[in-house]
């Protein structure tokens, strides 16, 4: 955000009606390493990834550390969050054996929700999930889990059941088989990653452009006079999107966790 606001001097407020960088992709790259350890670039994004990790660990640790009989409000909130992932997502979707996957699903949910909420966290304003690394990694882990569980639980019939579904009329069976195979093994990891990533990219883009434009126009009222009013709708709209993005951040974290559970469930009980 700081670098965007620095751009105020470069935005031609007397000609343009919105301030945007020539290449919006710039909003997602922090190329300059804060420092480098043996060729590993410790960029702002890398820093934020570890910050998210520490926040997640801190929330869980301080929420559950005491384990009091009558929990404080904070402890009750963290407990209900953990219980929600375990009871409603892991056990609720996968079934009684879903409890095994609860730690993974909790890690996904907590890491993604904190990473997403960085989008609307003042002074951070950058969702680490708008970088492909984290959504892609989580999707691949989910993919590995559900493929592994599918073969482990059902043997080769996991694969044959998908590409030669007995419940479908024989004339359509090959077609449905191809669609199922492609959607399960190829599209699932891609859609899972892209859904999260694209939502956060879009949100970050909108917030940055709207709020930065609003700020730049309004703050240059001394130079451009009445034209500064252009900034007002951008700013108001940006604030509206800001609230909306809080919902998106929570919802997308829930969706990727839920879908990971659903994918595992279809491998545990492929007939459903």
């Amino acid at each position: 955000m700081e670098s965007v606001i620095l751009a105020a001097s470069e935005c031609d407020v007397s000609e343009e009606i919105i301030c945007a960088p020539k290449d919006v992709l710039e909003l997602f790259f922090f190329e300059d390493a804060l420092f480098t350890i043996g060729g590993f670039n410790f960029t702002r994004t890398v820093f934020l990834i570890f910050l998210a990790m520490f926040i997640v660990l801190g929330l869980l640790y301080f929420g559950l550390r005491k384990g009091e009989k009558v929990p404080s409000k904070f402890a009750a909130a963290i407990e209900s969050l953990v219980t929600f992932v375990k009871e409603d997502i892991a056990i609720g979707i996968i079934g009684p054996e879903g409890v095994k996957y609860a730690p993974y699903l909790l890690a996904v949910f907590m890491f993604v929700i904190v990473g997403n909420l960085f989008e609307v966290t003042p002074l951070i304003n950058f969702p680490i999930t708008s970088r492909m690394a984290i959504p892609l990694f989580i999707s691949l882990v989910t993919w590995v889990i559900f493929v592994f569980v599918g073969f482990k639980k059902n043997g080769i019939s996991y694969l044959t059941g998908l590409i030669w579904p007995k419940s479908v009329p024989i004339a359509l069976r090959w077609l449905v088989g191809i669609i199922e195979f492609v959607s399960t093994f190829l599209l699932r990891p891609v859609t899972l990653a892209v859904r999260l990533f694209a939502n956060l990219v879009a949100g970050h883009l909108m917030l940055t452009l709207l709020l930065a434009s609003g700020w730049i126009f309004i703050s240059s009222v001394g130079d451009i006079g009445a034209r500064a009013i252009i900034g007002l709708p951008w700013f108001v709209f940006g604030l509206g999107i800001y609230l909306f993005e809080i919902v998106v951040a929570v919802l997308q974290a829930y969706i990727i966790t839920l879908l990971s559970a659903v994918y595992v469930q279809t491998s545990v009980h492929p007939e459903h």
Partner: peptide, 28 residues
């Protein structure tokens, strides 16, 4: 994915996962 971010993400996620697995669920 940026390789540095991928490595950081994997490390951070793995730590959260192990913490959730070994501490959070037994504790709760």
């Amino acid at each position: 994915p940026e390789s540095s971010e991928l490595i950081a993400g994997i490390i951070a996620f793995a730590i959260i996962f192990f913490f959730a697995w070994k501490w959070v669920f037994p504790t709760i």
